[in-house]
């Protein structure tokens, strides 16, 4: 039992030593290491920045989507009274906030005003337009999916001839956002590989610079684990430092965007606020940095440490 305790405390001590020692080594060469950390930071900041912009865009578009309207064109034979009745019935539906009624005459007047086809319509003599209901979905309904379901439901009403979103472009925007999201994922993967390569190469150079030291420590009975430790911890510090720099860069960038964005949203009479990194985002950013750092150095250490033997 005492033996186990002694071994454990030796192990913990050596970890603590390597942890602090590797940080000390990095601080001793501030310029070169800061450069490495900055490159890692920028590589991490790019996808994170895109992600946060995407989140903001989603926020904005989601706001628009809840104001989506559905236009119901009723069958021609439905008269104004039954159309109004339908509007009243629909307003009872919890999924619908408002059902506005536009009579055939109103529709015609509106059309004449907007189209300028006044003459042509007069020639027809009879009003060719159906009654129209304008449906505003319930406020609680926000997702495109739910709106889609509502649309399908309304289409099946016997009085309805056709139904459509009058903001089809919101759907298109969502589709576009999905493409951008995929692009951000691809970009993140590429930059993650870049970070791995940067860290791996930095550690490889460090190993070669410390060739003599590694040989000596091997001669004096250092295990592979002992020799690896400071390099793994440097990978950790590179990753953590890169994560911090990425955080800093994004915070500064968002600060710079905040003012013009609030001017813009005021012009749109919106209370939109730029989303910045949440605690969860920061945690994942740091976790990503540290994981990439450890992984990159681990690969490098396993590839290059074996090549060094005392002589």
């Amino acid at each position: 039992m005492d033996e186990i305790k002694r071994r454990f405390s030796t192990w913990a001590l050596q970890h603590a030593q390597a942890f602090v020692f590797s940080l000390g080594q990095l601080i001793r060469n501030p310029f070169g290491n800061l450069l490495t950390v900055a490159v890692i930071g920028i590589s991490l900041a790019l996808p994170t920045g895109f992600y946060i912009l995407l989140e903001n865009a989603r926020q904005v578009v989601t706001g628009w989507d809840s104001s989506v309207q559905i236009t119901l064109f009723l069958k021609y034979e439905i008269d104004d009274d039954s159309a109004q009745g339908l509007a009243h019935r629909l307003e009872q539906d919890p999924a619908i906030a408002m059902a506005g009624f536009i009579s055939k005459a109103e529709a015609l007047a509106e059309y004449q005003r907007l189209s300028g086809f006044e003459e042509a319509l007069r020639v027809l003599g009879e009003n060719p337009l159906p009654s129209v209901l304008v449906i505003r979905p319930g406020v609680t309904i926000a997702t495109p999916d739910e709106n889609e379901q509502l649309l399908a439901r309304l289409r099946q009403l016997p009085e309805v001839d056709s139904a459509q979103f009058d903001r089809q472009w919101v759907k298109r925007l969502f589709a576009l956002l999905d493409i951008i999201k995929r692009f951000v994922i691809i970009l993140s993967s590429l930059l993650a590989i870049a970070v791995l390569l940067i860290i791996g190469n930095t550690i490889r150079l460090a190993i070669y610079n410390k060739r003599q030291e590694i040989e000596i420590t091997k001669l004096f009975g250092a295990t592979d684990a002992f020799i690896q430790r400071p390099f793994l911890y440097s990978g950790f510090w590179y990753g953590a430092g890169g994560g911090l720099i990425a955080w800093l860069l994004i915070t500064i960038s968002l600060r710079l965007l905040m003012q013009p964005v609030s001017v813009l949203s005021e012009l749109y009479a919106s209370d939109f606020q730029l989303i910045s990194l949440s605690a969860k985002n920061i945690l994942s950013l740091m976790t990503c940095g540290v994981t990439l750092g450890l992984l990159g150095s681990w690969v490098s250490v396993h590839k290059h440490l074996r090549e060094i033997d005392p002589s």
Partner: peptide, 23 residues
């Protein structure tokens, strides 16, 4: 001599002990 030039004399001499995990 193969001393490590980025450390003090003390740290050089301490190396075998650090490797062995002395307090």
């Amino acid at each position: 001599h193969r001393l490590l030039v980025d450390r003090t004399v003390f740290d050089n001499v301490a190396l075998p002990l650090v490797i062995a995990g002395y307090r």
